[in-house]
Nucleic acid binder design. Sequence first.
RNA 1: CGGGGUGUAGCGCAGUUGGCAGCGCGUCUGGUUUGGGACCAGAAGGUCGGAGGUUCGAAUCCUCUCACCCCGACCA
Length: 574
Amino acid sequence: MGTPGRNLNNMRISQLFGKRLREIPAEADTDSHRLLLRAGMISQLAAGVYSYMPLALRSLRKIENIVRDEMNKTGAQEVLMPTLQPIELWQKSGRDLAMGQTLFHLADRKDRNLVLGPTHEEVVTDLAGRNVQSYRDLPFTLYQIQTKMRDEPRPRGGLIRVREFTMKDAYSFDADEAGLDVTYKKMVQAYKNIYRRCGLPAMIIEADSGAIGGKDSQEFMAVTDIGEDEIIICDACGLGANVEKAVSVKAGAENGPPMDIEEIETPGKESIDDLAVFLKVKTAQTLKAVFYTADGDLIFTVIRGDLEVNEIKLKKVLHAVDLRLATDQEVKAKGIVPGSASPVGMLGVRVIADISVTSGTNFVAGANKQGRHLKNVNYPRDFKTEIVADISKAKAGDACAVCGSALRTVRGMEIGHVFKLGTSISDKLGACFVDENGASHPIIMGCYGIGIGRLMAAVIELNHDDKGIIWPPAIAPYQVYLCPLYMDNAEVVKQADGLYETLTGMGIEVLYDDRAESPGVKFNDADLLGIPVRITVSPRSLEKGSVEVKLRSEKKPELVALGDAIGRVKTLLG
RNA sequence: CGGGGUGUAGCGCAGUUGGCAGCGCGUCUGGUUUGGGACCAGAAGGUCGGAGGUUCGAAUCCUCUCACCCCGACCA
């Protein structure tokens, strides 16, 4: 006899690689992380770098196959592109700078500089460019399911933010905007199908497209308190947007006739709160200065005292690659008095004002003199700006820009992102096609990503109880947890073995708890692993010619005659 | 990169004033058990993250360093 082979549809727990943990691993503090570790599904090698053990891999493969199926249905074609990419490609697109330290760099033996792909817009655009000449070659969509490498500043939450991860990324290539719109809609529908099939409620929101650029951009979010993103929601009109992008109407400032500007003493009042209390005005009646350094330039932003600068919006308005808060030294070097800075009379500095300065009058602002402020400052009478734009953060309680109802916020985890990329990359990489008239144009692109591992973590985050995971059947590692009690009872073993054979023969995936453990241990492991259906075979139920069948999501088992057990399981699994 | 924290057995942790390296869980052996993480007896398991220093003597004190976790920055 050689080594016993294995049916891919079944597994005996005694053979399964990966120990379940009774105690909660100390390093985990999100539910999905704790459960993935306790279930013996993942194992950490370094910060944000994990091995996926057999149970996890089975779920991941199922998710991948759902994704693959939905992609194929849209007509997209699967490819596989390299992880190892020449840096020149990134220099051409300009995104080596935009990605910054997130790019993993390495050199080969000939000292050529390479990066490990954090995403594949560059490679796929190069690939498309080599294979497209005419509008007749368009449109098409390519996708892959592949490993991405990103040197994240802070990996966290188990599989929620990691440095090496599997992503499905798709890229569409169209000849015109109308074509892109059609493709984009198909992708959005495919994404909805994917989340539904994975048993994960996903919310679609408006998003910023980030370093990648482009026009329309939407994110698919799983709503959970541990999410890294803040989502602004309008219950009245159904609008949802990432706070990075969200627009809102901020009431609160007075709107009386402009009065004469007046300089006043405000000794030691350097913060907006102190100033407002001292002058007995609302913070919404003050203007504050926030200083940034954008690609080396000092930027003076003016915004109502009660609002916060949205740095994503500011970055976009400025077309900046690198934006950070300015240091005190940088501010003082321009002759500005921190704590009493004023846009009034400000020269030689780029002044960017939030739109909020235009919707109120008679603000309190700095005098640019130590210990002094100005009353009744009005725009544009008293100060000039380079740009007036919406650069403030939306927050709960603001009015919806569409319907005026009050907005609220929830936290969400990004589980998918689609956007209309346009021609920003195809232009730079020279991926062009010739139209009917013989004119050359850059190909119009869209891109569409789903993190597979993060999706699995999100499913667990939203589908568990205090005992363990509750897998949606479509992505559960196995469908049935076969749980005989008292393995020293010959009849129990005989019936359980029989069920194991039969279920396996029918193509139902069975995890067989063949250990001589006590009932408590087995039930707890069954709950922890979260397999949808548990069949308990015991002397007690066999006496009645029955076994117990229980859904993981239900509290109570039902007694089912032995002969009906298989049928009942099939029904429960739909 | 800034702030906070943790590194001691596979996991969770204790270790006082510097004086024999500990506990619980798990593991192994034998026995008794068995419907929600059983019990008894016995056993194995440690470069105390690493390097250097102080000291008769360091898990403990000092210096440096590494790793991991959390908050922030950042995040296609």
